Amino acid sequence: MLDFATFYELQALYSDYAMACDSAEWEKWPDFFVEEGTYRLQPRENFEQGLPLCLLALESRAMIRDRVYGVKETLYHDPYYQRHIVGMPRVIAVDGDTIRAQANYAVMRTKYDGEATVFSAGHYRDEIVRTPAGLKFRSRLCIYDTEMIANSVIYPI
């Protein structure tokens, strides 16, 4: 069980993460993770069958920073806005300074000259740890519901 202050901090972590992604503040994205933090994007079917294949698997903050560099400097794509809608985190377990939580999400994508569409929907399964700088993700697993994503994933989910 979490005290109110810690739950509020957990909620802030989720909302700050979404706002950084939605505001295209990519340089902030790695700071949500501990140094050995992981970020994975996996289809629901693979997750439910215990299959390890992920669409994207970043195994450290350094790899997450490299992805930021790619997004900002090397990847060519049709630009778009995105908007995260994230449900209230559900605390699964607390063990010392480690919190396991999950939350539903939907990400809307809007091309500069088009309408908003649902780009991805699913849920996060997170392991969060307390650090001197506050709560950080040790692992973030984004499990998306459909086997297909309409286009390549450029920005973080």
Results as ranks from 00 to 15, higher is better:
residue 1 M to D: 12
residue 7 F to W: 11
residue 11 Q to T: 14
residue 12 A to V: 12
residue 13 L to Q: 07
residue 15 S to R: 08
residue 16 D to H: 14
residue 16 D to C: 12
residue 19 M to L: 15
residue 23 S to N: 13
residue 24 A to V: 04
residue 29 W to K: 01
residue 29 W to I: 13
residue 31 D to Q: 13
residue 31 D to Y: 14
residue 32 F to A: 06
residue 33 F to M: 08
residue 34 V to R: 00
residue 34 V to Y: 07
residue 34 V to C: 12
residue 35 E to F: 12
residue 37 G to I: 04
residue 41 L to N: 05
residue 41 L to F: 10
residue 44 R to M: 10
residue 45 E to N: 04
residue 46 N to M: 10
residue 47 F to N: 07
residue 47 F to L: 14
residue 47 F to M: 11
residue 47 F to G: 00
residue 50 G to H: 08
residue 52 P to Q: 00
residue 52 P to L: 02
residue 54 C to N: 12
residue 54 C to E: 08
residue 56 L to H: 02
residue 57 A to W: 00
residue 58 L to W: 01
residue 60 S to K: 02
residue 61 R to F: 05
residue 62 A to G: 05
residue 65 R to F: 06
residue 72 K to L: 15
residue 72 K to P: 03
residue 76 Y to H: 11
residue 77 H to C: 12
residue 79 P to H: 01
residue 80 Y to I: 03
residue 89 P to R: 00
residue 89 P to C: 06
residue 93 A to T: 09
residue 94 V to K: 04
residue 95 D to K: 10
residue 96 G to D: 10
residue 98 T to A: 09
residue 101 A to S: 13
residue 104 N to S: 12
residue 104 N to F: 09
residue 108 M to N: 06
residue 109 R to I: 08
residue 109 R to E: 06
residue 111 K to Q: 10
residue 111 K to M: 07
residue 114 G to A: 05
residue 118 V to R: 04
residue 122 G to Y: 05
residue 122 G to F: 04
residue 125 R to P: 00
residue 126 D to Y: 05
residue 127 E to R: 08
residue 128 I to S: 02
residue 130 R to P: 06
residue 130 R to L: 13
residue 134 G to R: 11
residue 135 L to Y: 11
residue 136 K to Q: 15
residue 138 R to W: 07
residue 141 L to F: 05
residue 145 D to W: 03
residue 146 T to R: 09
residue 147 E to P: 12
residue 152 S to L: 09
residue 154 I to W: 02
residue 155 Y to Q: 02
residue 157 I to G: 04
residue 157 I to S: 05
